[in-house]
C-alpha cells in the first residue's frame, strides 16, 4: 500500500458448528497455524447466515467474507449449505451492483475432522483477499 505498511486483510468467516467450527478445533489439536486475522463467527448451520449479515460485515470494514459450511450432501440440516450458497450468490450480485468485486464473498466447505483443510482454506482466503486489496467499502478515515 502507499503507506508502505503491509496490508493485513480482515476476513469474516461464518463457521458452521457441524463442520468448520469443529474443523478449526481439529486444526487446534494438531497445532496447524492459520492467519489470526480471520474473525470466526460461530453459527448453528450455514443456512442461518442472512445476506444482511454479509453486507453488514462489509459495512463494518471486512475485506472479505466467507461462509464455511459442510460438504454438499453432508449438511446436518439437509439443505443449509445450499441455502448459504444461494445467499453468497445474492451477496455477490449485490456487491457487483455496487461496483465491488463479487469474489470478496465466497462459500467453502470442509469436513468436521479436516483440520488441515480448514487451515489451508484460511491461507487461501487470505491470499485471495490480499490480491484483491483492501475493501473499497471500508469506512473513510
Amino acid at each position: 500500500m502507499t503507506t508502505g505498511v503491509e496490508f493485513l486483510p480482515c476476513i469474516v468467516a461464518f463457521c458452521c458448528v457441524h463442520s468448520a467450527y469443529q474443523a478449526a478445533d481439529a486444526a487446534g489439536r494438531m497445532r496447524i497455524p492459520y492467519p489470526e486475522n480471520i474473525i470466526m463467527v460461530h453459527i448453528p448451520c450455514a443456512g442461518r447466515v442472512d445476506t444482511l449479515h454479509i453486507l453488514r460485515a462489509f459495512e463494518n470494514g471486512a475485506d472479505g467474507v466467507v461462509i464455511l459450511a459442510c460438504h454438499e450432501g453432508a449438511c446436518h440440516h439437509i439443505l443449509g449449505n445450499i441455502r448459504a450458497k444461494e445467499r453468497v450468490e445474492r451477496a455477490n450480485a449485490l456487491l457487483r451492483e455496487i461496483g465491488v468485486d463479487g469474489r470478496r464473498v465466497e462459500m467453502r466447505t470442509c469436513a468436521p475432522n479436516d483440520g488441515s483443510r480448514f487451515a489451508r482454506v484460511c491461507h487461501e482466503l487470505e491470499e485471495k483477499i490480499k490480491e484483491l486489496g483492501p475493501s473499497p467499502l471500508r469506512k473513510h478515515a
Binding site: 463467527v41 448453528p44 442461518r48 442472512d50 453488514r56 446436518h76 443449509g80 441455502r83 445467499r87
Partner: peptide, 25 residues
C-alpha cells in the same frame, strides 16, 4: 435448530434466541 427459517423470513418475524440477528450483528 438450524435457523434457516430465521434467515429466510421476509418479515423478520422469526427469532432464533441463541442466534438472533441482533446477536450476530
Amino acid at each position: 435448530g438450524c435457523g434457516i427459517c430465521a434467515a429466510v423470513c421476509p418479515a423478520k418475524a422469526i427469532k432464533f434466541k441463541d442466534w438472533s440477528d441482533d446477536q450476530i450483528l
